[in-house]
Computed example of a mutant assay.
Amino acid sequence: MLKCKNISFQYNRSTWLFRNVNFALERGEIVGMFGKSGSGKTTLAKIMANYLSPAEGEVIIDGEKSVFPKVYPVQLIWQHPEQAINPKWKLSETIEEVEELDKEIIDILGIKREWFNRRPHELSGGELQRFCIARAFHPDTRYIIADEITSMFDAITQAQIWHALIRLVKERNIGVLAISHHISLLERISDRIIDFNQLKSCPM
């Protein structure tokens, strides 16, 4: 279980973005989260994935609080794939960041072999996002946070990406926190849905 316990965050010493956020995510379940823009959802995602440290509280991963020496078991997939990939690398180099990547993941995500020799600017956003999703499936990954990962795509691309992602996480017993403004999408993909603004005890 991935637990946020009394998580609080402030960007400076006088303004709290949110305080005392508590919730839990089980392995194998998909939890949808929605909330107002600027409320702190992405900041919480970064804390859970160890990109930021909370001002108060802690993240507990399957009962562990210690630092993980290798790959962090919570992987964050960003909204804008072009910002998460080195623009100078070929896509083959990007995917090589993942040790022991199951080749089946490449096929399920619909990644074509000819894309590997291209650089990010030569692919569409939907094609790039497939690489970002594949990169999240390290053998040590236990939880994935998907932060608005299909909001910039058309309905067909959204459906393709989520269909593949759901199949992979269910097969591998990975918990997913899906963050989105689109309630209709969350209703289709989630086991349960959380309103982030109801978790907060501090307004903007």
Rank of each mutant, 00 (worst) to 15 (best):
A84N: 08
D140E: 15
I149W: 06
P69E: 09
E58M: 09
H80Q: 14
E100K: 14
G126T: 09
A134P: 06
V98M: 01
P139D: 11
K112F: 04
H138G: 05
L101E: 00
E100T: 03
I108R: 11
K65R: 15
L128M: 11
I85M: 07
I106F: 15
R113N: 06
P120I: 06
Y72A: 05
E96T: 10
I156K: 14
V98D: 04
T141R: 04
D147Y: 09
V98H: 03
P139L: 10
I77C: 04
Y72C: 01
K112R: 13
E82N: 01
V71G: 07
P139G: 11
E96H: 11
T150Y: 01
I60M: 03
V59R: 08
R113E: 14
I77G: 03
E93T: 13
R142N: 14
Q129L: 08
I108N: 02
L109Q: 07
I144D: 05
Q75G: 05
F116L: 15
R130W: 00
A136Q: 07
A136N: 05
A136I: 05
I95Y: 07
Y143K: 09
I85P: 06
D154N: 03
D154M: 01
E82P: 00
I106H: 08
V59Y: 10
W115T: 00
L76M: 02
